[in-house]
Nucleic acid binder design. Structure first.
Lengths: 239, 239
DNA sequence: CCCTATTTGTGCGTATGTATC
DNA sequence: AGATACATACGCACAAATAGG
């Protein structure tokens, strides 16, 4: 079963064996792997060696370990198309998952330099800031901080809170259609906030997306910075 | 200068003071910060407090510390447009920087399932795999693993190695033009390989981009997985 | 609420092979 | 050849989280 002393390390062979089992469907998403003790018995190696194999699978985002409970196969990452008509719920529904949005908090504030510039407003203009979280099948996918100019979008928090849909909230403020004007993509390491809201460990990778939406006349209506769990999402561009 | 006991920690105030100085241009990209000793004197705090402030700036990607040398202001992140005609050198030149590419290694191999699928080849077909690194102004921006079908692209390693240009290498194999068909964007934390090739610390965020290029007839000619330092690059989509 | 068995997390020590200078 | 560093692999012990009775 294991080829020792042939240039491929033992932990790597074990990782590949498990990965093949996942790819082959023997371990479907959500399934629990055998315990570390069982695996070390099965492969005839020390538990530490199994743990290193498992760690490599965690780093690849294939499995997730829960102390005291076990190791579980991760769901396939959500393909998230980035484009002019990016809509969270449509994307999630398009992959036969159940979308949900939740408002964490909202408040009025003066626009920061960065936000004022993005929304083409005089610095310090009043905006309404909304923090929200987004889920697919109950699993956290992303959270975001968004800013909308006032007074035009005063009703956004109310409608967004009631419906969980940005599209509906904007429609209620007289914006029947909008499109993505700017998208900037970066990456970061999950801090405490990310970890809590995305239910990932601190230190896991997150994708950070800054975006500006504009209405049909090209007027900026929304600035947002979203944090996606990189373990659960792959962004796709064109195609 | 420092407001103690008002709900904002001292290290945070110091971090914001330094950040303001950077934003204001007092510390341009590449500049060296005062030594930690000098800063602790200036702010009247312990050196540990300064270190915590600096650490927070490192985590934000604003500065980089070089042991034994000093702390330096990071260059503004390179804006990297993702689109149908993504070309590394054009992007870098477009921002008045000096591009460079270097081949790390190359070899022939049978295509993995993933690569064969992306290139629309029978599994196990021969491809040439090239690992390369890419720089702007001498600073590492990305490194990638690329696969080209054989025998059509047998000359790619040779020409790429000589010119440092994928475009030139493909042209030498009879592909005057190509475009990006698929782009998938994820994120990860830098492992040892990333850290060495991108000159970042292990644990820093990296953007991972899988892409497929096709020729004018839509035939796949190149699969690649690129790792970008998220501290030095922002991807942009449309606009 | 407590207790216990299971399971993962962590630390220490040891030995060995391999790559590098 | 020697010295050094590093990754690999193993063994043992205990801590911490989970789940179930």
């Amino acid at each position: 079963m294991l080829a020792r002393g042939r240039g491929v390390t033992v932990w790597r062979q074990i990782a590949e064996a498990i990965e093949a089992e996942i790819a082959g469907g023997g371990l479907p998403p959500g399934a629990r792997l055998p315990t570390e003790a069982a695996l070390s018995l099965r492969f005839g190696v020390n538990r530490h060696t199994v743990r290193q194999a498992v760690k490599s699978l965690v780093d690849k985002g294939l499995v997730r370990v829960a102390q005291g409970s076990g190791t579980y196969v991760e769901a396939k990452p959500l393909a998230y198309p980035i484009g002019a008509r990016t809509r969270f719920s449509e994307i999630v529904v398009g992959q036969a998952r159940d979308p949900a949005g939740k408002v964490i908090s909202h408040r009025e504030a003066g626009a920061s330099v960065e936000i004022a510039e993005a929304l083409d407003l005089p610095p310090g203009s009043l905006v309404v800031m909304i923090e929200s979280a987004h889920f697919a099948d109950g699993v956290p996918i992303s959270w975001s901080t968004a800013a909308f100019p006032l007074p035009r979008f005063a009703r956004v928090p109310e409608v967004y809170g009631a419906t969980g849909s940005i599209t509906a909230a904007l429609a209620a403020c007289g914006v029947p259609d909008y499109r993505r004007a700017v998208t900037r993509i970066g990456a970061a390491v999950a801090d405490r906030t990310d970890a809590g809201r995305l239910e990932v460990a601190e230190g896991r990778p997150v994708l950070v997306i800054e975006s500006v939406n504009v209405d049909r006349d090209g007027v900026p209506i929304q600035w947002a910075r979203s944090h996606f769990s990189a373990d659960r999402v792959r962004l796709t561009v064109g195609g």
